[in-house]
């Protein structure tokens, strides 16, 4: 039982700690600026927890603190609480318990913890016992989702741990290879996308890759992401727009091309007179025409506009009994299969 563990207080030189042994580590090595500032100003307040192992000591809790101490006080001894040797499962459980007693684990730490726990505990026990303790919904669904996150690439883990990409996006990009995750992260950084857009883009890339049966990297390449983000003439917003447009054209080629054609032909009309909307056309032989009338004179203007519509290229292409319907969309064929 964890509550029965006895601790002994010791100062141990850094060289006495088995620094290469990261069996119990759940955090990712990253930039802990705030913690570093605090340790350099006030020293180590919470000691590391270690246990005797071979000729030295194995770290159970305090990997981040150890990273910082190695960097800023490489010669100084480290304050440690030493336990008797513990079975590996208890070491891990102790580390998790110590962490969640003082703060919430970030998603990557939770994922690492669950992945490591699965070496010692069955899935049912992890779901019942550990997920609620980590503030994660007690379900197999959540278990599977989190365990998948443990296989994110290093940079994607950093982005997820620091909240630079939302969890929902991390769940999508974990299905990409590590190099594809890199490409995706480059895109969202260059475009300075906000949380919602990141999630939407990750989903769009994943779904389009499934649609075409190719990898996510191929979709990012087909959308021309690399050249868009390296185009110095574009602002981040413009880059975002270009990328979204390219991805949507891949995802909905028939719709996008029919829309483009419709817009092109509708531009021949003054939208202040009549407004044309093709939406109904995507399911029926119909387009929608809207206008308001303010006076008899105005009515005459609108009637004239409708007369022009009757003879227009738009009517010829998009309405039945007048040169066939929807040739623009119909010709486009299938999406990548």
């Amino acid at each position: 039982m964890l509550e029965d563990i006895q601790y002994q207080y010791l100062s141990i030189p850094l060289s006495g700690l088995n620094q290469a042994d990261e069996d119990n580590r759940i955090s990712i090595p990253a930039d802990y600026a705030q913690l570093e500032k605090s340790i350099s100003e006030t020293g180590l307040i919470s000691p590391l927890i270690v246990c005797a192992s071979g000729a030295g000591y194995k770290v159970i809790c305090g990997f981040k603190r150890l990273d910082i101490l190695k960097k800023i006080k490489p010669g100084a001894p480290v304050k440690c609480l030493v336990t008797d040797p513990l079975p590996p499962a208890d070491q891990l459980a102790l580390n998790i318990a110590e962490n969640i007693s003082s703060r919430e684990l970030n998603p990557v730490e939770a994922a690492n913890a669950i992945a490591k726990l699965s070496a010692f505990y069955g899935r049912g026990e992890i779901i019942e016992k550990f997920l609620p303790a980590m503030n994660i919904q007690k379900s197999e669904y959540a278990y599977n989702k989190y365990i998948s996150l443990a296989s994110l690439g290093r940079r994607a883990k950093e982005f997820t741990a620091s909240g630079r990409i939302p969890l929902a996006a991390a769940f999508q990009i974990v299905k990409f290879s590590c190099s594809e995750q890199e490409m995706f992260l480059n895109v969202i950084e260059a475009c300075r996308m906000g949380a919602n857009l990141i999630v939407e883009t990750a989903q769009l890339v994943f779904e389009t890759s499934m649609q075409y049966g190719v990898c996510a990297g191929e979709i990012l390449t087909r959308a021309g992401c690399e050249s868009i983000i390296s185009n110095a003439d574009l602002t981040p917003n413009q880059k975002t727009e270009e990328i979204r447009r390219a991805l949507h054209s891949l995802k909905r080629p028939m719709y996008e091309s029919a829309m483009a054609r419709f817009r092109e032909l509708a531009a021949e009309f003054d939208s202040r007179k009549i407004s044309l909307n093709p939406f109904a056309y995507f399911e029926k032989d119909e387009i929608s025409v809207k206008f308001n009338i303010t006076s008899i004179k105005d009515l005459e203007t609108k009637i004239a506009a409708l007369e022009r519509l009757k003879e227009s290229r738009l009517a010829a292409e998009f309405l039945k009994n007048n040169g066939g319907h929807g040739d623009g969309a119909r010709k486009e064929g299938k999406a990548g299969r």
Partner: peptide
Amino acid sequence: YFRFKREK
């Protein structure tokens, strides 16, 4: 499916 795809 988009109308013309169904048609096909």
